[in-house]
Design a protein around this nucleic acid. Structure first.
Lengths: 148, 148
DNA sequence: ATACAAGTTCAAGTTAACTTGAGGTCAAGG
DNA sequence: CCTTGACCTCAAGTTAACTTGAACTTGTAT
């Protein structure tokens, strides 16, 4: 356990759903920081939970841990804004493609054509796919505590 | 080179943009087939190109190569459509995430706060997105600890 | 016939994001 | 004091999807 200001690794893990091993890994990568030790044991500030949410979100939208780490460093503040708009535009492109693909999949699932290759709409998606390399999230399951 | 009916690996690679090494890898995985050999050299039918597009599409919407391979086998025709719809739903979740992220980025780019993560509106958007996280059933591995 | 570019096999290496294992430390309880 | 459990470190293992390397064979041009 920890005092009322800090969390130990088990508490962070419990609150965030992120395994302790991953928390150590993230710390080693510089994605989160521990604010001290109690003996050997890491102590975290409560805001690490927010940080972890951001990391998870970043991953969900397709950023690598390295990219996420880069976004956390405040040195880049000046170029940040420009970068952000670039990223936003990039994301927007991806969104358009994903929407087309999603619609295509839904269509394909209901399409009466004997083979998908005879379905014009599906062929259209193939063409979209050929043009756009969409960065895709790795569907990862979050270990939820059914803590009730 | 090959005759007018077939393509050699270099031709397939050139037309598809997929490296020869990857084509061999895909063949080993059963994702594509070569229709014979000329000496040692693989010969492919032209429709392998369509197959490759399909593989690329599958990857872009988040299927693993194994899943794609499974979809090519005729046994699974029934679950095919189910899988497609599942992927469409996943994709839709992704789209929601991306939209939130994009909006967050755009806002952050115009937000006066010194760093991205000091912008409350941005954080709020991220938190909303965090809750929209996909809950999935398919559990490959046993539940993780998180000591407690 | 000879050179050589392009094909082949098979094994091992690569990257990302973690997980697992071995071996060690410390606070609390019996 | 001794055990136990949660923590620690560091190294190695894991999975996906390929890539690279070494050593070998073959088609084609000269």
């Amino acid at each position: 356990m920890s005092n009322n200001q800090t969390l130990d690794i088990a508490e962070v893990s419990r609150h965030s759903g992120v395994p302790a091993s991953t928390l150590r890994f993230y710390e080693e990568k510089g994605l989160i920081i521990s604010v001290g030790r109690q003996g050997l044991r890491r102590l975290f500030q409560a805001n690490v939970l927010q940080r972890l949410e951001l990391i998870a979100l970043g991953q969900n939208v397709g950023f690598s841990l390295d990219e996420i780490g880069a976004m956390f460093t405040p040195q880049n503040v000046d170029i940040d804004k420009k970068l952000l708009l670039e990223k936003a535009a990039e994301l927007d492109q991806n969104i358009q493609h994903l929407i087309a693909m999603r619609d295509g999949l839904v269509h394909a699932a209901h399409c009466p054509e004997p083979t998908l290759f005879e379905c014009p709409k599906f062929l259209k998606i193939l063409r979209i796919t050929g043009k756009a390399k969409v960065k895709q999230e790795k569907q990862k399951k979050k270990p939820l505590q059914s803590g009730g």
